[in-house]
Nucleic acid binder design. Structure first.
Lengths: 204, 204
DNA sequence: AAGGCTTTTTAACATTTGTAAAATTATTTC
DNA sequence: GAAATAATTTTACAAATGTTAAAAAGCCTT
């Protein structure tokens, strides 16, 4: 049984970054390949140099690195997100993070060389690549700022509001490290927010 | 008296991002304008929408935002760095930060519209813009990761090693907030690192 | 070089978060 | 549906950092 019946088409995801003409779009999508990968698959290994880029059509992924021997999750990607190790890709050097699928997933993929060739050959696609990097930059900067400005409680509430489904799909240990606290602290936060889980009796 | 006698030329700074052909380079630099601005000048105001981009030829700047009523410095720029509020520029919305010159400075500047027009008209410049965003992304991501992985002591030592001049040019209050701690904590860190400032007597 | 301003350090205390281990709750597997 | 496994919460204590205020050191300016 396929993981999804009707994943959003790759066109939709690509056009969401920066609109391309029909011609540029066709050149672009011809280079992407559909793959289905299972939960637990590592898309990118720490210490390796990036070679492939992914686009998530269905599924969820996380990027993490190690502090001492604890895993630190610092990024989640879901449908419509592009997956690559920018630090490895830009400087063509070993990356410091691993990227793992947290669900059975459907992805589109393209090699770095192929994408780079498209950037050189088509100026619309070059501008598409600029927009992708710019959007990713702003997302990263906003996370960085929120790390500075917001308490873990603030950030947990923001998650509750903007990505409630993430809390359903991802173990709390990963969420805690994403918020920059231990799981114990996250538990304390959750307890404060839901003061006493109301007993089911007496609730109409 | 000019602030500098021989600032590095704009060509050098632009080519450092991504090499342009002589033709593209000329198109590019024709649009940039030289300005001298004094210490304390605000290049970008929180709440405003970005309109100009700067390149620092000589000087130093910081980006900061407010947490309650304390200033939080989260970025420093020096010679060769480009200055813009990406979050405001990308989505054409009010930015959350202000950017201030910490020294009398020499800068090159261009309007967003002009640069955007160059991206559309010249594919080399579009790829230049992609590279700029990608490099900025990696810098931001690396700072974000170091915030997660490193203690304030680690980060201070890294500053000492990689940007010792920054510590000379910038007040410690700004450095402390850049490292994500209070100035009191930074003082404690410095005390540990330089256990007892050796008295000048007896030192040959 | 004396006074006034700013920057940096120190002190004492309160608060928060981390650590490690146990207890509880959910989920899976047979 | 009982046992086994994994995930989450709780507890008690230790360690690190923040807060507020005062002291010390640096620096301009006259």
């Amino acid at each position: 049984m396929p993981i999804v019946n009707h994943p959003a088409s790759i066109q939709t995801f690509i056009q969401a970054i920066y609109p391309l003409s029909e011609n540029a779009l066709q050149i672009m999508i011809a280079q992407w390949e559909l793959v289905e990968l299972t939960k637990g698959t590592i898309l990118f290994y720490e210490g390796k140099t990036a070679s492939d880029i992914y686009l998530i059509a269905q599924g969820i992924a996380r990027a993490f690195c190690y502090k001492e021997d604890k895993e630190l999750t610092f990024w989640f990607g879901k449908e419509g997100d592009f997956v690559l190790s920018y630090n490895s890709y830009i400087y063509d050097k070993p990356g410091y993070e691993s990227i793992e699928l947290l669900e059975d997933s459907v992805l589109y993929t393209i090699g770095h060389e192929e994408l780079h060739a498209l950037y050189q050959q088509n100026s619309e696609i070059a501008n598409w690549g600029r927009k992708l990097a710019e959007q990713e930059l702003v997302r990263t900067e906003e996370r960085f700022i929120s790390q500075l400005l917001q308490t873990a409680t603030d950030k947990y509430n923001a998650l509750l509001e903007h990505s409630p489904e993430l809390l359903q799909r991802v173990p709390l240990g990963h969420i805690a490290s994403f918020l920059g606290v231990t799981q114990v602290t996250l538990s304390r936060i959750r307890k404060k927010i839901t003061p006493t889980p109301p007993s089911s009796e007496g609730v109409s």
